[in-house]
Design a protein around this nucleic acid. Sequence first.
DNA 1: AATGCAGTCAACCGCCACGTA
DNA 2: CTACGTGGCGGTTGACTGCAT
Length: 255
Amino acid sequence: MAKTPSFDKNGVKKGAWSEDEDNKLRAYIQRYGHWNWRLLPKFAGLSRSGKSCRLRWVNYLRPDVKHGNFTKEEEDLIVELHKKLGNKWSEMAAYLPGRSDNEIKNRWHTHLKKREKKDGDVLENEHVETIQPDQENAKENQMPAQNSNLEFLQDVESLLAESPSSSTKSCWFSGLDSVGSSDNIQQLANYTAPESFWTEPFLSDNDNIISSSDNLFLTSDFVYPVSCQDDMIMTDEFLWSSIDSYLEYNDQFIR
DNA sequence: AATGCAGTCAACCGCCACGTA
DNA sequence: CTACGTGGCGGTTGACTGCAT
């Protein structure tokens, strides 16, 4: 499927990645993070270009990357987003957790483009409008701009502070669409975390940070249940201690 | 069984935007 | 202001798979 491995004139390897190369790259990034893609292959012991390493990580090795067939919902969303955004694959990827821009692009070119053309022809014959302006606006409201993780948490923190209902906090994290009637509750329910919030483990040289149950935002134990299980309800204490840990931990690097 | 062809997807390439010296 | 380095994006390619003939 992938290209045959070969070496260019500078001794840089190209083509399909071996399991050994994957393991080296994964191990290096999990321990040190990707601080400089150009230098990374040298330190990780790989005869690859930085670009190739980045692509392999982003599209394949990241722990949150979904491998497998697209669901009907995902495909419908891609079609809708393509109507809205055009070929902005990376922007679309922000709305499809676990899917890379490359994967979305491939899916569009191999499947959805044809489906869309077919649907378009049918609709043209039936003289039906595919999307109403109001629906567009509604969609816009559900997809706020992505912030940095820290900005996102600060926004959430301030919204939660204004919330009269303690259950709001749990409901928001459980992924419910609507949890109340007041403005800030509604705003919170519509709020979208940056994808990296769930997926970036904030790696450092200290392995304890990855495995410590005290830093719940930093562990896969916490990140994955929240991002994958819609019906998970968290206690307020758990949520607040997690946010505090997260902000505290971030401060070490920001200051 | 052999061949051709369309579909699929991992990976590459060139370009651009942005930050920094 | 300019040059340079880096990361990221979108378009394209090439190898593999599966199906039809």
